[in-house]
Design a binder for these strands. Structure first.
Lengths: 193, 193
DNA sequence: TTAATTCCTTATCTTTTGTTAAGGAGCTGA
DNA sequence: TCAGCTCCTTAACAAAAGATAAGGAATTAA
């Protein structure tokens, strides 16, 4: 089970058995149901999850409206990473869109490993770089593309096809930064009949 | 002169003289004039600059329109960091808004230091985390705030007052993700006479 | 099976933004 | 000094998005 996390980490670093076991010992497993929250706005949460199955949405809430920053699926990490770094209460929330099974470890566990094994410091750097890259691209799209162009790009991304198949359209609208009504209009415009 | 960079780095890490000198040796100094480009879209640029004086804007260009992601001032780093990480040609451009004096070093220099001194690996992690934090906040604002709210928040940020004083309003509009005309209307709306 | 719920679409109206063009204030350089 | 340039504002119109409400299809639960 935890092998899947170990394999995921090889995208970033190579671990000896000893190094891996140091992390593996700290893992816990958790199941959450659809609509349950992994993180709630205002909470101090430093847990980092690895999704074995299911999916989540990460979103900001303001005035009762929810704006999605990204979606997470199986075999990827999910966390309020900003909150982990700053130690401040999270400004975002994470909710299960399907029943989820997760491996969990704490950010403190990770920082402790930074001291013990240089390879984990490298992992921390590459992870932050990876998250930075994702946000950089996301922000650029939000700035230079119109809502319609953003939706077309979303459709054109193979990695996001599965999102469309598994995620209610209202959340895709919230990801694109528009209302569900507006997305519905865009769809009619670009997919005539 | 380079002392100012050393002092800046103490926000992230503490360096011994030996560690600092390893980087200091690699520094070059550069002067660029207002409107000159530090990075042009499409270029492979892995230079990292530390602004001793002046200011720059970092922006994406599409269909002749330019959208600013952030502004840089003296005593801060400026780079196409995404391009550094990926090794791909830069998708963004960096232009001087005032005459600038910079200390420059290459991203390769930094990664070489990762191998030699663990403290630089830590710096690399903290730098990536810092950049991630900036983007996370920026994206959230872009998603949950209206253009008018974004401008009000911009006005309310002490760190950004100097931007307003030194930067033409059209670039602030481009940072807010709206046209200069639209910003002008917002200003009339919120600052009645 | 039926009722309730969720989710998407559509319509109408309002608000906001984009587009284009014109004009004026202020700075800059010959 | 004066012409040119940059930058901001304003106006008029078009395009797009938000708000609200209604209706229907599909799924879920009793």
């Amino acid at each position: 089970m935890s092998d899947r996390l170990r394999k995921y980490l090889t995208h970033f670093i190579e671990l000896t058995d000893l190094e891996w076991q140091a992390l593996e010992q700290q893992l816990t497993i958790k199941t959450i149901n659809k609509k349950d929250f992994l993180v709630q706005k205002g909470q101090k949460t430093t847990q980092i999850g690895f999704l074995l199955s299911g999916s989540c949405r990460v979103f900001y809430e303001k005035d009762g409206e929810e704006w999605t920053t990204y979606f997470c699926f199986e075999n990827s990490l999910v966390a309020a990473y900003l909150s982990c770094i700053t130690g401040q209460p999270s400004t975002l929330s994470i909710q299960a869109l399907e029943d989820c099974q997760l491996l969990l470890f704490d950010y403190q566990t990770l920082t402790a490993l930074y001291q013990q094994f240089p390879v984990y410091e490298t992992f921390g750097r590459k992870l932050a770089e990876y998250l930075f890259m994702g946000l950089d691209v996301r922000l650029a799209e939000q700035l230079i593309l119109s809502p319609e162009e953003r939706y077309l790009k979303f459709l054109g991304s193979p990695a996001k096809r599965k999102i469309i198949e598994r995620i209610p359209q209202q959340y895709i609208a919230s990801y694109l930064g528009i209302t569900p009504v507006s997305l519905s209009r865009i769809r009619r415009r670009i997919i005539p009949v």
